[in-house]
C-alpha cells in the first residue's frame, strides 16, 4: 500500500509550502495530477485520504484529482498513440519500443490557500497584496 506513503509526501510538501508562506493560510483545495501509467491507484488514494489527512493542514481541503491518459510514441515508426498499459504495442507496427509521452505524472498541481491571518482580506473589494505566488 504505497499510496499511504504518497499521501504522506503530499502532506509534507503542502505543509512546507504553508511554512514558507509564514503559516498564515489554510488549504481550501488541492489538485493532484495522476497519470494512468503512474502506478498509483486513485481509488486507494481516495479511500485512505480522509483518515491520512486528519489533524494535518489538509484536513479540510477539497481533494481534486486530474487523470492524465497515457500517450506514447513508437521509437521505430514514430506513430503516436493512446496507451493504457506499458505492454500495449504500437498499433501501426506492433513494436514494443515505445517512449512514454504522458501518463506517468504524479504531481501536486496546485493549492488554493485562504489567508487566515488577515481578516481584511476576506472583505469584499480589491484583495490586499498580502499573499504572493512564486
Amino acid at each position: 500500500m504505497h499510496e499511504l506513503s504518497i499521501i504522506h509526501s503530499i502532506i509534507e510538501t503542502a505543509s512546507s509550502e504553508l511554512a514558507r508562506r509564514g503559516n498564515r493560510h489554510q488549504i481550501e483545495e488541492i489538485t493532484l495530477k495522476i497519470g494512468e501509467l503512474a502506478g498509483i491507484e486513485t481509488d486507494s488514494i481516495i479511500f485512505l485520504w480522509s483518515a491520512a489527512v486528519e489533524r494535518t493542514p489538509l484536513e479540510n481541503a477539497v481533494l481534486n484529482i486530474e487523470h492524465i491518459p497515457g500517450k506514447a510514441r513508437c521509437t521505430e515508426c514514430q506513430q503516436e498513440f493512446q496507451i493504457a498499459q506499458f505492454y500495449d504495442p504500437c498499433p501501426k507496427c506492433q513494436s514494443h519500443f515505445i517512449e512514454i509521452l504522458a501518463g506517468e505524472e504524479l504531481q501536486i498541481a496546485s493549492l488554493i490557500l485562504e489567508d487566515t491571518a488577515n481578516p481584511e482580506s476576506k472583505m469584499p473589494g480589491p484583495a490586499l497584496a498580502s499573499t504572493h505566488s512564486r
Binding site: S9, Q107, I108, S110, I112, A127, T131, S133, R134
Partner: peptide, 16 residues
C-alpha cells in the same frame, strides 16, 4: 480575491 492559487506543479516523489 481573498484566496491564492498556488501552482506548485511539484512531483509528489520530489523529496525521495
Amino acid at each position: 480575491p481573498s484566496k491564492t492559487l498556488v501552482e506548485l506543479e511539484r512531483d509528489i516523489l520530489d523529496k525521495n
